[in-house]
Design a protein around this nucleic acid. Structure first.
Length: 488
RNA sequence: GGCCCCUUCGUCUAGCUAGGUCCAGGACAUCGGAUUUUCGAUCCGACAACGCGGGUUCAAAUCCCGCAGGGGUCACCA
């Protein structure tokens, strides 16, 4: 009879919402869903100096944006609340007291200055910096008296001097640390706030967390947590440490070297589904090799034993490809809707929907849309020079002007609908009449009509622009060539 | 530096638990070709890896040992 699965993420609201948080959250939620368990969000805001309410809001918003959701948390409630550590201070205080009484922890009166001194002298002597335990044996009664007297103190965990502590990592197997290599960790700061270690263990236990799935940077701390569980007489949860996300230079991911803020991805126009899919590919793989999958699929087949122990370089390149794949799978209306919501300026609904199929396979991000769409409705964006109108092998402005003018006349005389195939026939006929290569003609026309060398298919674009606009732009181009005087 | 973890193409990875089917498979990127009015998309193809050294074995990417390299961690931050 095992307990119902309960997992959690425990972000600190100390900065922009981090991809790493989404990464860890994804695996936790997948595990919870697969096991019919609960996924909890707990805010670890015990760092008074760095925690800010707006960062907390940012976490909720960004996580929801990528499509994650939790069953319990500060914003959605639950039976094990409060879910914000700053609101659980008395709980930690009580538990620290238990440890004190049991003799598993002790008050320490050393000031930051003496600790720094200690560390420096140890380093000078070539020894590992470690608290020397000078407050370890102060009688608890005496210590309490000193504290009552107004002396500042922290609480330290009394780590055994001998022996070793072992824990089982579901991904890497057994990991053992010698106790002598574990410091007497501070578990309550002098401001009365608990440190991560205490708060984390107490909360995980009180909230019934059965599986801790967190980043690999916590491996070294885990023995301390085991010691804490032991001191309380609690059963420890199972531990899985996910691969660390790395910068391209293989260092731990950082905002200096990689885009770490989830907001960045949103503003870039990355689809949340693509981001989530990409994260699911880091350190993890589906048994059948599928690389494009949604959360449901991942959750259905999720298997912790398929997670790698090695760290993963976080390389956006594959995400760009994935985003393109997701973008291309969208229906016209769907994409148009996303483009509108993304906030780019567009001419009008009808034009946008007509243009979407033309740009859909040409964009990597939603943020690419703005410039792709410009020429459809903004003449002022046609900022090309007369020389741009000259195809590679046709350097004579007079001839080019003649061709464009001839085409303008031809198009003006054409009374049918602007069906792409028909317009193309006009173009081809024009090129042939002047004995131009098709490519040269289309390029000159392309610049005249769109102002750019890189555009969606020309005839389809002209259909959307409408005959009048095209004629007008052709006239402008012809004028431009007339007044153009070659410099050599 | 101590301790801990990790090590398959440039990158993400499959294979490793139960050694032979792997002169190592897929994907992205790159390069080339096809298609083509540009770009893109698409299709085809190419390049490219078991860190090194010892063992064990008829046989090792897979097991063992050593080394090297990388990363993490050594806070009253999480």
């Amino acid at each position: 009879m095992s307990n119902p699965v309960r997992v959690r993420i425990a972000p600190s609201p100390t900065g922009d919402p981090h991809v790493g948080t989404a990464y860890i959250a994804l695996f936790n939620q997948a595990f919870a869903r697969q096991n019919g368990g609960r996924f909890i969000l707990r805010i670890e805001d015990t760092d008074q100096a760095r925690s800010k309410p707006e960062y907390e809001q940012g976490i909720y918003k960004a996580l929801r944006w990528v499509g994650l959701s939790w069953d319990e948390g500060p914003d959605v409630g639950g039976e094990c609340g409060p879910y914000r550590q700053s609101e659980r201070l008395s709980i930690y205080k009580d538990h620290a007291e238990i440890l004190l009484e049991k003799g598993s922890a002790y008050p320490c009166f050393c000031t930051p200055e003496t600790l720094t001194e200690l560390r420096q002298s140890q380093e000078k002597a070539g020894k590992d910096p470690r608290y020397d335990g000078r407050c370890r044996d102060i009688d608890l009664k005496d210590a309490r008296a000193r504290i009552a007297n107004g002396e500042k103190a922290v609480v330290r965990l009394k780590v055994p001097r001998e022996g070793s502590t072992l824990f089982h990592d579901e991904i890497r197997g057994d990991i053992t640390l010698q106790n002598q290599d574990i410091d007497d960790q501070v578990i309550v700061k002098s401001d009365g706030f608990p440190t991560y270690h205490l708060a984390n263990v107490v909360d995980d236990h009180l909230m019934g967390i059965t599986h801790v799935i967190r980043g690999g940077d916590w491996i070294i701390s885990t023995p301390k947590h085991i010691l804490l569980y032991n001191a309380f007489g609690w059963e420890a949860p199972s531990f899985s440490h996910l691969p660390l996300l790395l910068n391209p230079d293989k260092s731990k991911i950082s905002k200096r070297k990689s885009p770490t803020s989830l907001t960045w991805y949103e503003e870039k126009g990355i689809l949340p589904e693509a981001l989530l899919n990409f994260l699911g590919l880091l350190g993890y793989s589906m048994e059948d090799g599928t690389e494009i999958f949604d959360f449901q699929t991942m959750a259905k087949t999720f298997d912790v034993s398929r997670i790698k122990g090695a760290n993963s370089v976080f390389d956006i390149t594959k995400l760009e490809w994935l985003n393109g794949m997701y973008l291309r799978e969208l229906g016209t209306k769907e994409l148009a809707e996303k483009i509108k919501n993304f906030g780019v300026s567009y001419p009008d609904d009808a034009t946008l929907e007509a243009a979407v199929p033309l740009i859909q396979e040409r964009i990597k991000y939603l943020s690419d849309v703005e410039e792709r769409l410009g020429f459809f409705f903004r003449d002022r964006e046609l900022q090309y020079e007369a020389t741009d109108l000259l195809p590679k092998k046709k350097k004579d402005p007079v001839e080019v002007g003649k061709v464009l003018e001839a085409f303008r006349v031809r198009l003006e005389a054409f009374t049918g609908e602007m069906i792409p195939a028909d317009v193309e026939a006009l173009c081809v006929a024009q090129a042939e009449e002047m004995e131009w290569k098709k490519g040269d003609f289309f390029m000159a026309l392309r610049i005249a009509v769109t102002g750019s060398k890189v555009t969606p298919p020309l005839c389809e674009s002209m259909e959307i622009l409408g005959r009048d606009t095209v004629l007008q732009r052709l006239a402008v181009a012809v004028e431009k060539l007339k007044s153009f005087v070659p410099t050599q």
